[in-house]
């Protein structure tokens, strides 16, 4: 259940909120400007590393892929197809097999 900060005051104040709202809302917001870090990590060199670097790193950094467990070729195929079909990754058809092979070699089920 909600805990009104000044429950009675709030209950009585709906029609005349601004002043009371200020009283019950100690939070004041400040504009924010930040820089988010990026990652320059590339996929390890190997057959197909150019294809995966060129096609995949525009949308996400490599680290999460490298954190994946060993998965079957079938699972890696489904993953790459999900990126293309659901998330509209503009991967050239001729690169799909290369990327799946790269991932299966790097992170294939043992």
């Amino acid at each position: 259940m909600f805990r009104n900060l000044l429950s009675l005051a709030v209950l009585l104040s709906i029609a005349s909120t601004p002043l009371v709202a200020r009283a019950v809302t100690p939070v004041e917001l400040k504009s924010v400007k930040i820089d988010l870090p990026d990652s320059d990590k590339m996929f390890p060199d190997g057959s197909g590393s150019d294809a995966i670097n060129n096609n995949c790193l525009a949308c996400h950094s490599a680290d999460m892929v490298l954190n994946q467990p060993s998965l079957s070729k079938q699972a890696w195929t489904a993953e790459v197809n999900k990126m293309i079909n659901n998330y509209k990754a503009p991967i050239a058809p001729e690169d799909v097999g290369t990327i799946v092979e790269y991932l299966t070699t790097l992170k294939g089920a043992k």
């Binding site: 909600f2 805990r3 009104n4 900060l5 709030v10 104040s13 709906i14 909120t17 601004p18 709202a21 200020r22 019950v24 809302t25 939070v27 004041e28 917001l29």
Partner: peptide, 14 residues
Amino acid sequence: SLNDILHGLPSVQL
């Protein structure tokens, strides 16, 4: 606006 939200509606906490 954020002002409308912070100061124009009842505040609640949860």
